[in-house]
Design a protein around this nucleic acid. Structure first.
Length: 569
RNA sequence: CGGGGCGUAGCGCAGCCUGGUAGCGCACCUGCUUUGGGAGCAGGGUGUCGGAGGUUCGAAUCCUCUCGCCCCGACCA
């Protein structure tokens, strides 16, 4: 490709609304342009990267035995009503009407559609298992789209759905997809980690997320330093610390005045104690009734853990009225002592001593609280968001927190959709059973963006070779110097003839401009053809990732590039 | 959804408070010089000041409505 002919509008400055580095660099590097909030044009350079990701995904999915299909982007409401998600999914589901007033939505995910497809065609266990996938745009009307391709409203996703006659088969496929995903991200040349995850809106029984590791990631991952345990902090369990002793209750319970001091910060500041000395009491309304939830002041509640502990399907912080009814006090002064509502406490609360908590009356807290003495009715469980230093739930190790970008997710769905939508088959015994399902997604654009978040420097992007839009860029320092131009074109032509995807910067620009652009778009290998070196029959080869430079004979440039790229084509 | 901010040339911004010729840098176009890290000189403005309405002799500027974009928050007691 000749750069002079390429639609590659690079910018010196990044637009003021760009926030994260991948977004800034993709815009500056002429890969994407914003059309509306969370909606982007993909330009030639960007599309080359997207295609590379897609092709790796496609080849590994095919190798794993999945079959590519294509489902529509505009989906009829009836199927969503059948699964119950028309009402459940909320505002992220962009609903539209056709000219007859029939309801449709833009597809945010395709469980309903694929389940409908398969239930119509598959009758017998003999036709199972089957794994169908597609690579196409999705639309989720995010509350706050941001970060460019990292969290767009419209985005390209690879989504796969598998159907099985029994659990063992579904488990085998889950493992198969897990391994396939590992291969995919390995082939992309990215540092990643597979972690246990929440299932969220897709539903299902258990799941793993694949995270590209990057400090700028939106997700926090807890992983153990001693064993292989790793989980999204939304999910990460915390070991019950059996070792910490239960302190003996020595001091007398004491009521103190805390006028208007509600929050942990306010109360701890007012009483001059550490937040960790406080027991915070959250009043929750759930489908199992109103409960009090206790956490150490410096810890945070993990709502999914609370739901699991209560076996509740709904849990939300109670409103002011409910709080008053449950505690007899305005919110901010709730405490577990003599509380009628059931009390669920995080493990960490058990070992606290001389703690402070709300007195269940306005403007008052209790001092010298001992859990075992003062609220023996509490049920202890794992309720808090895992933090660095917490105990690993699988071994004696300690959890550390790193950041990641979720680029893939594998779910074991079970029969959630097949039961709701009647996707059944006849087993060997002739009885009708719902299919067991799994689903497996990869964010294509997000993977590309994550690659930048993980690999960049001040000058621009640094593409890992498998995702790089081009393998090599040839830069004649001055195209008006015909000798340079000719030498550069020759090298360019022979690289291309060897199937090395090469870009020739044949623009009549000064060297500095070309170098800046080359660094910005981050092609792995650059061949610079300059007057000084060419006089001696030499050209310069530079690697983007480490800046290493070597001079080679003009005639050896091609083989040198080939060797650097580690290819023998 | 709540709060805040912004919308002026392709991009980044000033001008607005205190109404009176629409500006700066980069980019872009022409010419000359220059050619190994975002060149210099000279010339060129490419604009519905987001939109609509209002106040006024006169509105980018003041008022009302509206659209778009961005940020923070969305139950941390």
């Amino acid at each position: 490709m000749l750069l002079s002919r390429m639609f590659l509008p690079t910018l010196k400055e990044s637009p003021s609304d760009a926030e994260v580095i991948s977004q800034k660099l993709m815009i500056r590097g002429g890969m994407i342009r914003k059309v509306a909030a969370g909606i982007y044009n993909t330009l030639p350079l960007g599309l080359r990267v997207i295609n590379k990701v897609e092709n790796i995904v496609r080849s590994e999915m095919n190798r794993a035995g999945a079959q590519e299909i294509s489902m529509p982007f505009v989906l009829p409401a009836e199927l969503w009503k059948e699964s119950g998600r028309w009402d459940e999914y909320g505002k992220e589901l962009l609903r539209i009407q056709d000219r007859h007033g029939r309801e449709f939505c833009l597809g945010p995910t395709h469980e309903e559609i694929v389940t409908d497809l398969v239930r119509r065609e598959v009758r017998s266990y003999r036709e199972l298992p089957i794994n169908l996938y597609q690579i196409q745009p999705k639309f989720r009307d995010e509350v706050r789209p941001r970060f460019g391709l990292m969290r767009g409203r419209e985005f390209i996703m690879k989504d796969a759905y598998s159907f099985h006659a029994n659990d063992e088969s579904a488990d085998i496929e889950y493992r198969n997809m897990f391994d396939t995903y590992s291969r995919i991200f390995e082939r992309c040349g990215l540092a990643f980690k597979a972690v246990e995850a929440e299932t969220g809106q897709i539903g299902g029984r258990f799941s793993h997320e694949f995270h590209v590791l990057a400090d700028t990631g939106e997700d926090a991952i807890a992983s153990c330093g001693s064993c292989s345990y790793a989980a999204n902090v939304e999910r990460a369990e915390v070991r019950a610390d059996a070792a910490s002793p239960i302190a003996e209750a020595v001091k007398k319970l004491e009521k103190v005045n805390t006028p208007g001091k509600k929050s942990v910060d306010e109360v701890s500041g007012f009483l001059k104690i550490k937040p960790a000395q406080l027991i915070k009491t959250l009043i929750y309304e759930t489908d199992k009734g109103v409960v009090a939830v206790l956490l150490r002041g410096d810890h945070e509640l993990n709502e999914p853990k609370l739901k699991r502990a209560l076996d509740a399907s709904f849990a939300a912080l109670a409103d002011e009225t409910t709080v008053r009814k449950a505690t007899g006090a305005p919110s901010g002064f709730a405490g577990p002592v003599n509380l009628k509502a059931p009390v669920y406490a995080d493990y960490a609360v058990k070992a606290m001593a001389e703690a402070v908590t709300g007195a269940n009356e306005a403007d008052a807290h209790l001092k010298n609280v001992y859990p075992s003495r003062d609220f023996p009715q509490a049920v202890y469980c794992d309720l808090r968001v895992a933090a660095a230093g917490d105990g690993c739930p699988r071994c004696n190790g300690t959890l550390t927190i790193t950041r990641g970008i979720e680029v893939g997710h594998v779910f074991k769905l079970g029969t959630k959709y097949s039961e709701a939508m009647g996707a059944t088959f006849l087993d060997e015994g002739g009885s009708e059973r719902p299919m067991i399902m799994g689903c497996y997604g990869i964010g294509i654009g997000r993977t590309a963006a994550a690659a930048i978040e993980q690999n960049h420097d001040e000058a621009g992007m640094i593409w890992p070779l498998p995702l790089a839009p081009f393998d090599c860029e040839v830069v004649p320092v001055n195209v008006k110097d015909l000798d340079l131009a000719k030498a550069a074109s020759e090298i360019y032509a022979s690289l291309n003839s060897m199937d090395i995807e090469t870009l020739l910067d044949d623009r009549d620009e000064r060297a500095g401009v070309k170098f800046k652009d080359a660094d910005l778009i981050g092609i792995p290998v650059r061949v610079t053809v300059g007057e000084r070196n060419l006089k001696n029959g030499m050209v310069e080869i530079k690697e983007r990732k480490n800046g290493s430079v070597r001079l080679v004979k003009k005639e050896e440039a091609v083989s040198e590039v080939k060797q650097l790229l580690g290819r023998s084509r």
